[in-house]
């Protein structure tokens, strides 16, 4: 599945929900399914501090593909992280750098990636891209 197809899949999954609360119930379900990071791995270098919630992001490169693990203290943030990881995990750094998470907008979650929301998600997407860029120019 291409990275665009993965995003389309998420959009389709959400299309069945008309009510905002149903959408968020599903995001919370996704959040609960995210494995997260063990307390020992929640180190300062992985922390992305937000005004409203905190996010931790760890990254590894295997056979030219990037794998992310992440966690958040708020479950809605964690649910959105789950979707971002679903999209970006297992992709090459080049693909990651070229791909904007358009599904966020399509699902109606734009506010969570706005700079004013300050839940750490926008910074997390930036960090994912920075990691991708750094893996190309180590």
């Amino acid at each position: 599945m291409t990275i665009q197809e993965k995003q389309q899949d998420l959009i389709d999954e959400f299309s069945i929900y008309e009510d905002w609360m149903d959408k968020y119930e599903y995001i919370i379900e996704l959040g609960k399914a995210v494995k997260g990071l063990s307390e020992a791995h929640k180190t300062k270098d992985k922390l992305i501090e937000g005004c409203q919630s905190n996010v931790w992001l760890a990254c590894t490169l295997q056979d030219g593909k990037m794998f992310f693990e992440a966690d958040a203290d708020a479950i809605i943030t964690k649910g959105i992280i789950g979707m971002l990881l679903q999209v970006y995990n297992g992709e090459t750094p080049q693909t990651i750098l070229q791909t904007e998470p358009f599904f966020i907008d399509a699902i109606g979650l734009t506010e969570h990636l706005s700079p004013t929301r300050a839940n750490g998600l926008l910074s997390m997407v930036k960090r994912i891209k920075t990691e991708a860029l750094q893996s190309l120019n180590p």
Partner: peptide, 19 residues
């Protein structure tokens, strides 16, 4: 988390402050 509570309240039309 206050952020989760605030977000769910918002979607039900209720404006509170969290943080």
């Amino acid at each position: 988390h206050p952020f989760d509570l605030g977000t769910l309240l918002d979607k039900q039309g209720i404006a509170v402050r969290t943080g």
